[in-house]
């Protein structure tokens, strides 16, 4: 019962023209234009700096666009040939897509689970410890991805990394193992790296949402005898559905696009073909070879896949009026 306290408010608020339009119900043009006035600056920036370049990426993807075309400025339309080449390449189906999708699923699940757990923990701490933990996880977030990746590589280094040394010291392993040559151990390390770098964002965001959940609701539930597990699922999750939706959608987008954390790993820049993901593949196949049209086609493909996933997410996680 308590779980439905807030949701109707949101819906009601959004539908109430009086509150939405302003103090007095007037159908004057200024009021009708207000949402557009509020949106205008953001839309202007996005349209000029992201939307138009995005359209150009799409146009490139229909051309054989290489260094020569860049210099001469000529268009070289080839229709859907780039897309044809992508879909007929067995690497896409056997290596690139499984790596990208499999990794993204695990990374999103891991990041969101750990981030939420940390947020709940932080919300239950006193102000001093909350600041300590908050600052600590900020360090993980703020550390440049490049640096973080090299540190993880050192930790798992085959010859002198502490993981190998520990495993050998306790006798689980006789010889040093190079974890980077195997597809699964390679991505396990990437996963650790990405979760380590990504969960602070989730934790801070969820924490911000948690702190907005009215205390009275939680207290009332506790009085009703609901355990903490039950309180989490019946009060926090429904209240933070929008926040969770955003966090999951954004994590998915980022984890699909992961590039530096793979590219900088030993063998990750293309010499270990089993470790390619969509981002690195597009970079190696196209940008390394000056085939910008082909690279753009991969980028468009990635965008379409992500768009599909997002639409499904939005449909299942949010009710239409909540969107």
């Amino acid at each position: 019962m308590t779980s439905t306290i807030q949701a109707p408010q949101v819906a009601r608020g959004a539908e109430s023209p009086r509150a939405a339009g302003g103090p007095v119900q007037r159908k004057n043009p200024l009021v009708r234009a207000r949402p557009w006035l509020l949106l205008a600056p953001a839309l202007a920036v996005l349209a000029v700096l992201l939307l138009w370049p995005l359209v150009r990426v799409f146009l490139f993807s229909l051309q054989d666009y290489g260094l020569r075309e860049i210099v001469s400025g000529d268009a070289n339309w080839i229709g859907l040939a780039n897309y044809g080449e992508i879909f007929t390449d067995p690497t896409l189906w056997t290596v690139v897509l499984p790596n990208t999708v499999g990794f993204a699923v695990l990374a999103v699940a891991g990041t969101v689970a750990l981030g939420t757990a940390v947020a709940v923990l932080m919300a239950s701490l006193g102000p001093v410890w909350r600041t300590v933990v908050g600052s600590a996880i900020m360090i993980a977030w703020a550390m440049p991805a490049v640096t973080g990746t090299y540190v993880w590589v050192w930790i798992f280094d085959a010859d002198r990394g502490i993981v190998n040394e520990t495993l050998q010291a306790i006798g689980l392993q006789d010889e040093p193992v190079n974890w980077f040559t195997n597809r699964y151990t390679f991505y396990a390390i990437v996963l650790l790296n990405v979760i380590h770098h990504g969960f602070p964002f989730v934790a801070i965001t969820i924490l911000a949402g948690l702190l907005g959940v009215p205390k009275e609701m939680l207290e009332a539930a506790e009085v009703d005898g609901a355990g903490s597990w039950r309180r989490f699922w019946s009060i926090i999750v429904p209240n933070l559905r929008q926040v969770f939706a955003v966090v999951i959608i954004l994590s998915t987008i980022w984890d699909f696009k992961v590039f530096a954390q793979v590219y900088l790993m030993p063998g990750g820049a293309g010499s270990n073909r089993e470790a390619l993901n969509l981002g690195v593949w597009s970079y190696v196949e196209s940008f390394g070879q000056n085939r910008y049209g082909f690279g753009s086609a991969i980028a468009v493909l990635l965008t379409v896949v992500l768009l599909g996933i997002t639409v499904v997410y939005v449909r299942t996680m949010l009710k239409e009026e909540e969107l």
Partner: peptide, 16 residues
């Protein structure tokens, strides 16, 4: 607004 940030940044370098 969501779509614009799905494009891999590497692909946006030239047009941007």
């Amino acid at each position: 607004i969501l779509v614009v940030q799905m494009v891999p940044l590497e692909a946006l370098v030239i047009p941007l």
